[in-house]
């Protein structure tokens, strides 16, 4: 899996990423949770219960002063997805067998380890940092340079992903303003700064000539998208105002990432 930080995602894949992501479970207690002792007391709600109003409680929102520009970019990305990215990803999926796409994905995810290690450190999450380091060593050796992902079987080796946008958020820096980036999709001022910060940790960013790094990035995005064709349409379809739905989804998603212990 490959939800490398925002910068690495071409396309609306980013928007799709909002809802559909990644291994964030450190343990798996399984189905047999114990509930004998904490049996909750049942209580019936009266029809005029006004508890639903709690949804009015102040929620995290984001300023959107560039609304018109953002919306234009949103429309552009939508067309780009349907006219270019989706057909390309479909073609890619048809031509390249799934195991090969999976290996490519694993390899690039492994290459992204420095971002996750660095940001775990910056966020003071030493256990996660250790897990990421183990994972890197394990997959690079037993997974043959990371083309395979044997660490997948060990939930504790798969801590939640980290990026510099999250790190900034943990430092108390707010979203700033909402931005829809061409190709990449929903973001905020803080997360754009995060993307810039993560370049430091991105091995592929230092490849010379740069065109190789860029090609890898585009390849990665198309490859990622090939696993998620159709998800963007579903999210868009479920929305009444897609622009607002993706904006809120992105903000909620990032907040959850930042708040996780």
């Amino acid at each position: 899996m490959c939800d490398r930080p925002i910068g690495n995602e071409v396309s609306l894949k980013k928007t799709v990423v909002i809802l559909m992501l990644s291994g964030m479970f450190m343990f798996l207690p399984g189905v047999q949770a114990v509930y004998s002792d904490d049996s909750p007391t049942l209580q019936t709600r009266s029809p005029d219960d006004e508890e639903y109003l709690e949804e009015d409680a102040p929620r995290i929102t984001v300023a959107d002063p560039l609304f018109e520009l953002n919306q234009a970019v949103f429309e552009f990305n939508d067309k780009l997805y349907f006219w270019v990215l989706k057909p390309v990803a479909q073609g890619f999926r048809a031509v390249v067998p799934t195991p090969v796409r999976q290996c490519f994905r694993n390899f690039l995810h492994n290459l992204g380890s420095p971002i996750r290690i660095g940001n775990s450190l910056l966020q003071g999450k030493m256990d996660d940092m250790a897990s990421e380091m183990c994972r890197l060593v394990y997959n690079t050796t037993f997974g043959v340079l990371g083309f395979w992902d044997p660490a997948k079987e060990y939930p504790h080796l798969n801590p939640p992903n980290k990026d510099f946008g999250q790190t900034l958020g943990r430092f108390g820096i707010g979203n700033g303003i909402y931005l829809v980036l061409p190709v990449i999709g929903p973001s905020t001022l803080r997360d754009v700064a995060g993307m810039a910060g993560d370049v430091v940790f991105t091995p592929t960013a230092f490849i010379d000539p740069a065109v190789v790094g860029w090609s890898l990035k585009i390849g990665e995005s198309i490859n990622d998208l090939s696993f998620r064709i159709g998800q963007y349409e579903e999210l868009k379809d479920a929305a009444i105002i897609p622009y607002e739905s993706f904006k809120d989804g992105y903000i909620q998603y990032r907040k959850q990432k930042i708040d996780q212990p």
Binding site: I18, L19, M20, L21, E55, R59, A239, I240, S245, D248, G249, Q252, Y253, K255, Q256, K257
Partner: peptide
């Protein structure tokens, strides 16, 4: 879903 509340989104 992945931390995004359906109801808050609507």
């Amino acid at each position: 879903i992945e931390g995004v509340s359906l109801i808050k989104n609507y």
